[in-house]
Design a protein around this nucleic acid. Structure first.
Lengths: 145, 145
DNA sequence: GTACTACTTCAAGTCGACTTGAGGTCAAGA
DNA sequence: TCTTGACCTCAAGTCGACTTGAAGTAGTAC
């Protein structure tokens, strides 16, 4: 497969594939002239990378886990840790969602006068929600536009 | 309150407070010489901003909602929309968390040979999880270090 | 044999939310 | 009075994950 084929099949832009290769996240099986040639397992590898990104790993972390070569040392402890982090993120987002949903239908003249909203505000202010959440997820990626 | 006081009470660094003021997210009630003087409601305002950030609003969006002045036009429709977005984010994170958690205890010799892990991989590859999630949350903020 | 197109490299730019640094001002304490 | 230290402004830097652009090359179609 050439880079365009991989891009098409995976939805990952060619520029990103080159970038990933440079970072050591993927590699091509060889070249045809100048052009990279990728093996079939590249798609799986890209899926693995996508998975890692969604789970909140940075590209560097992912590179460490999957190495430059195969699909080896995914540290099980690390997985548990990430799962736990995700869990606490989820809890916070649930609190947020419920708060937003209530605020949307709340009959108080202004949100500031709604006790539920104020409680939510308190949560945010106290930092109960604040950090961690933002540290959890990868940066903004706009859908391959 | 001077800026240091606000910083201490809110946990928001002074540099960030200046930045927020510049952006029109907050304003001081006046000056004492050069120094900004903030009213008591600044803390509530900052909480509101923190809340917005956690909910996935950008600073610009927040600025629009809270205006430069008081706590006015928080658009209820927008709240519902954000709540829905949060909800779908939550669903995806839950899938991720469960997948990670399983992978951590899975007895398959390599993750690649575990059917559950491969299913998760498939999800990530298909884009079922992929985007939106990353577009949901604000950028990385390192806990005021 | 030449035009075309899809690839290549490498450097630089982008985005959002801040932080950092240089250089300046001002009120209070020794 | 002089120094200290907390504040000020404004410009520039940072971070991660890419994208974009310029300039070059190589395989294919005519």
């Amino acid at each position: 497969m050439d880079i365009a084929e991989v891009a098409k099949r995976s939805g990952v832009p060619a520029s990103t594939l080159r970038f990933y290769e440079e970072k050591g996240l993927i590699n091509s099986v060889g070249r045809q002239g100048l052009r990279r040639v990728f093996g079939a397992n590249i798609l799986e590898r890209l899926a693995l990378i996508a998975l890692g990104r969604v789970a909140g790993f940075s590209l560097d972390e992912i590179a460490q886990m999957v190495g430059a070569s195969g699909s080896p040392n995914i540290d099980r402890e690390l997985l548990v840790k990430k799962a736990d982090e995700l869990d606490s993120t989820i809890q916070k987002l649930i609190a947020m969602r419920d708060g937003l949903r209530h605020a949307a239908v709340c009959s108080a003249p202004s949100h500031m006068e709604c006790p539920k909203f104020r409680r939510l505000l308190g949560l945010a202010a106290s930092g109960a929600i604040k950090n961690e959440v933002s540290e959890q997820l990868p940066k903004n990626r706009r859908s391959n536009d």
